[in-house]
């Protein structure tokens, strides 16, 4: 039985770190929500909102990227699953996979961006471009932050600091990473498909 399912020594029974991470994620939902509702407003209402054709957006590549990020979420949850069973090697292996996949995501995006620039979709070329780069850019910053978080976990894991009883931060990092994945799962359809 792992740490996170036992009742913690707090009034709510939820460890403070976990509760804190969830509260933080709530604020992030509101942050992305503010952007997304602005997108909804202008995309629906503006008379000057040009949506590029599907061919220009590179949907297949973005789909691959979505798979990449979802897979990284799976490896992250497998990492947590591993340490919950005391399998430190499994934790390390899956953390490394997650990092590699995250880097792939960034790599694909860094191919996508110049491609779009050549198509004429830039941040100032029109509202679509403005929203696209702002939101995916902000998302990328979150990916980079997540990778730093995972690097920190990896360093600790290699030093043997995580055990069956004590691995709370792995779980919290996982929550954050799934949120980052979740945001992309929403951004992908609203920019590439609709």
């Amino acid at each position: 039985m792992s740490d996170s399912h036992a009742m913690a020594d707090t009034n709510t029974g939820i460890p403070s770190g976990k509760l804190g991470m969830w509260v933080f994620l709530a604020s992030e939902v509101m942050l992305f929500g503010g952007f997304i509702s602005s997108y909804v407003i202008l995309r629906t209402g503006s008379t000057n909102f040009v949506v590029p054709g599907k061919e220009m957006l590179g949907v297949p590549l973005a789909m691959v990227n979505t798979f990449v990020l979802i897979t990284s979420s799976v490896t992250m949850v497998l990492a947590l699953d591993a340490i919950e069973k005391g399998n430190v090697k499994g934790l390390i292996r899956n953390l490394i996979f997650t990092l590699i996949l995250a880097a792939c995501f960034l790599g694909i995006k860094s191919y996508e961006y110049p491609h779009k620039w050549h198509e004429g979709i830039t941040i100032s070329s029109g509202l679509f471009g403005s929203f696209y780069y702002t939101l995916t850019g902000l998302h990328m910053l979150h990916v980079v932050g997540g990778m730093a978080y995972m690097g920190y976990l990896l360093r600790n894991a290699l030093a043997g600091r995580y055990t069956v009883q004590s691995h709370a931060r792995v779980e919290y990092a996982g929550l954050y990473w799934h949120f980052v994945d979740l945001v992309w799962v929403i951004l992908f359809p609203i920019f590439y498909l609709l």
């Binding site: 709530a26 939902v29 509101m30 929500g33 503010g34 997304i36 509702s37 602005s38 909804v40 407003i41 202008l42 995309r43 629906t44 209402g45 503006s46 008379t47």
Partner: peptide, 21 residues
């Protein structure tokens, strides 16, 4: 007009978030 619909949907999205959270 489209702008009216846009604002209405946008506000609906933004208000629903704190409620659900």
């Amino acid at each position: 007009s489209p702008m009216i619909q846009g604002f209405t949907w946008g506000i609906a999205v933004l208000l629903s978030l704190p409620a659900l959270l």
